[in-house]
Nucleic acid binder design. Structure first.
Lengths: 158, 158
DNA sequence: GCAAAATAGTGCATTTTGCTCAATTTCGCG
DNA sequence: CGCGAAATTGAGCAAAATGCACTATTTTGC
């Protein structure tokens, strides 16, 4: 997966400003022809530059105002099965395998403290889980952003 | 911010399947009139159900294949200033204030291990930082998803 | 059961899309 | 420097989608 060039980045920046911009409007804004923009967009699509739309949905709107991160210590050989178990819990919205102190970091959304308690129990009940450490997110200090990296320009093209 | 009803959820589900679906196609798919879908979409927009488009951009495509989570212990009263400092580091893509062991959880993308080392140093150099714990994400076991929660339906309407 | 809100249906001008084709420019590389 | 491939441009055109408005009809909350 090769890196993107400056034009791609400018496209992405404009999209970040307004995701509903039309191809025509983008072409005009960037001083490119419509064909070029359309080709670029298709290329971005097929290169999997765009992640799932679900990422743009606000969990708060869905009725899950609470966010928590749960670190999990796992019995190593059971990691595969555990991933499947975690995938069965709807409130688990994201999970990573980690180096360092903990083995797994799980992102969880929930309706309230009681709900979090319940979900945490569910996780602890999964086969392979040795210990969990739950941290409630008190504030979104820096909401997800890629803008600074987009503006910095392409990384050493090649 | 009131919760969404079943129709909104079905809309979001369809959008998750294919974000580029037109209003017309959505209306047809859901058995609604175009007017209704258009009104719903506007309502979702103005209710801030949609988060920034940046969330859909793949950092790997941008040339940042590595992802890390850094826990930070902070001198409490310096949290505000620290947030500003962290915001100045482009590779910091997300940050949360936490309860529990650590005070801050920071999500960082980088080009390679050396890059991560450099960024970690930058964070440690910030005023207010007492200690950091870095974990490299070895695998995206469960990529971000909201689908299970969407399919579950609306949370106790009211 | 009433009033307000949501939905459906219709219409129309304008814009956007998807597609193709040929000419031109830019770029990689020997 | 110069060749050939790739990218970009401009044009055209039919089909589709959008934005807007207006009026019934249905659904909903109280």
């Amino acid at each position: 997966m090769q890196t993107l060039d400056g034009t791609d980045l400018r496209l992405l920046l404009e999209l970040a400003k307004d995701p509903r911009r039309t191809v025509v409007a983008l072409a005009q804004k960037l001083g490119l022809s419509r064909n070029t923009v359309q080709a670029r967009m298709s290329a971005l699509e097929s290169r999997n530059v765009f992640l799932s739309f679900e990422r743009r949905i606000n969990p708060v709107s869905l009725g899950y105002p609470l966010l928590a991160f749960i670190s999990i210590h796992v019995q190593q050989h059971k990691l595969g099965a555990l991933t499947d178990s975690l995938a069965q819990i709807p409130e688990v919205v994201e999970a990573f395998g980690l180096t360092g102190a903990a083995d797994l970091l799980v992102r969880v959304v929930c309706t309230d403290a009681e709900d979090l308690f319940r979900i945490n129990g569910k996780i602890q009940a999964c086969d392979g889980v040795e210990r969990t450490d739950t941290s409630l997110a008190m504030g979104e200090l820096i909401p997800f952003r890629l803008n600074p990296l987009l503006q910095r320009g392409p990384r050493h093209t090649g």
